[in-house]
Design a protein around this nucleic acid. Sequence first.
RNA 1: GUGGAUGUAGCUCAGUUGGUUAGAGCGCCGGAUUGUGGUUCCGGAGGUCGCCGGUUCAAGCCCGGUCUUCCACCCCA
Length: 460
Amino acid sequence: MANKPSIPKGTRDFSPQEMLRRQYIFDTIRGVFQRYGYLPLETPAMENLETLTGKYGEEGDRLIFKILNSGDAWKSVAPNVKAMIQAGEEVPPGRLASELAEKALRYDLTVPFARYVVQHQNEISFPFKRYQIQPVWRADRPQKGRYREFVQCDADVIGSTSLLSEVELVQLFDDVFTALGLKVVVKINERKVLSGIAEVCGQPEKVVDIVTAIDKLDKIGREKVEEEMRTKGVSDEAIRGIAPLFELKGTWTEQRPRLEEWLASSTKAQQGLKDMSLVFNAVGGLKSATLEFDPTLARGLDYYTGAIFEVKALEGSMPGSICGGGRYDDLTGIFGLKNMSGVGISFGADRIYDVLLETNKFPESLGSSTRLLFANFGEQEAMHCLKLLRAVREAGIAAELYPDAVKMAKQFKYADDKGIALVAIIGENELKEGTVTIKEMVSGTQRSVREEELLATISA
RNA sequence: GUGGAUGUAGCUCAGUUGGUUAGAGCGCCGGAUUGUGGUUCCGGAGGUCGCCGGUUCAAGCCCGGUCUUCCACCCCA
């Protein structure tokens, strides 16, 4: 016997019980997506490597799973690269990988979507609203709530710059988490405001360094943030200029005038603040989510240009975000289609699963798919049950017949383990009298009904 | 990618300074109960101690490597 079989690091099997719960999440999200007019789309698990590289920042490129070329991959390596290796020279990072692999597993759903839009632009009617629920892969080191294979549920609107899309997506977040019964905070920020901060501080070229440092504020505190900016080459004067950010507290209506005053000299920032105001004014009352402007929210993905979103659970111990998203003005530009602004959000189904499990929010009824089990008393009785079984199934009730005529205790245990609510007993006596004995598993009570009454009895 | 922990039965975990045949609880299977599960009682099966190598008369225990899971960093759903 060989070694115990196993699966790759960071991947998981899902048992029937886990799948019922996962499908509950997917179905809930899918239902809301469709109610908002988004249409389904699927793209391949693998993309051409060059489609993905350079879209997620330097860190992102490292995390892309590359697929070794089939056949003898070494043959596909360019002669000059081979020569470098044979001469013992250092090959630039990524260079050899791009020679050995021309395909890669998708890293997210947004970039493949942009690729799809460019490729099919003549068939699409814009603005195009699509949703996509598929796994993505990242070569990250696994941790709690961090997997190498996980499912994202995306909704994007492309081909419109209207802020009504941002408003709609916030409402969509709220609807999904209301349906799932989870309290969340939707954090929102504007890349234009972040650029404005860098401008006002006199170091617009340092936006990325400033922003990624600020993003860690709630984690490492103000002093460490300033220290990191300093090591990244941000001037002391600029760091002093950022100070008002740390004083910003309260609701949007409290934050807004202070931001407007502070960032008055940046027309970019003013535009961003105006956009945020529209979103806050238009979004209306929310049921499960609270919308919060968070000027320290950055998000690493390079392609965001406008609003950025992040959702955190207010219940449970999940440290990371459970959803993300934002507006990208030129994602399709890299593939040759200009002036195509889009905005989208992504639900992290696996993290949502972990939160719902921890906080006990899954509905009880997900335990089983079968409602009625026919006990098997032997060949003659089973043949009789088969007819009734068919009628029950045709009435839309999930039912099954125990396949073997084993002793009753085992059959009842099967029903118990599988969470089946009702067991129909048709033995010698019932067969003779044309009746069915129905046992309700939870209470343990049972009663005898005529066969004709079976459907009415169990559908109640 | 960097640093640090971890791995013993299906699951959760004991296992002394290295010393016969590695234990418990839960679960599983069988019986008490040949037409009744979830309670109870009795009995039983199940372990290459993650994997490979080393030290030793002797390794679950010590050493090296490797894989897994977890924690911090990085980043993110």
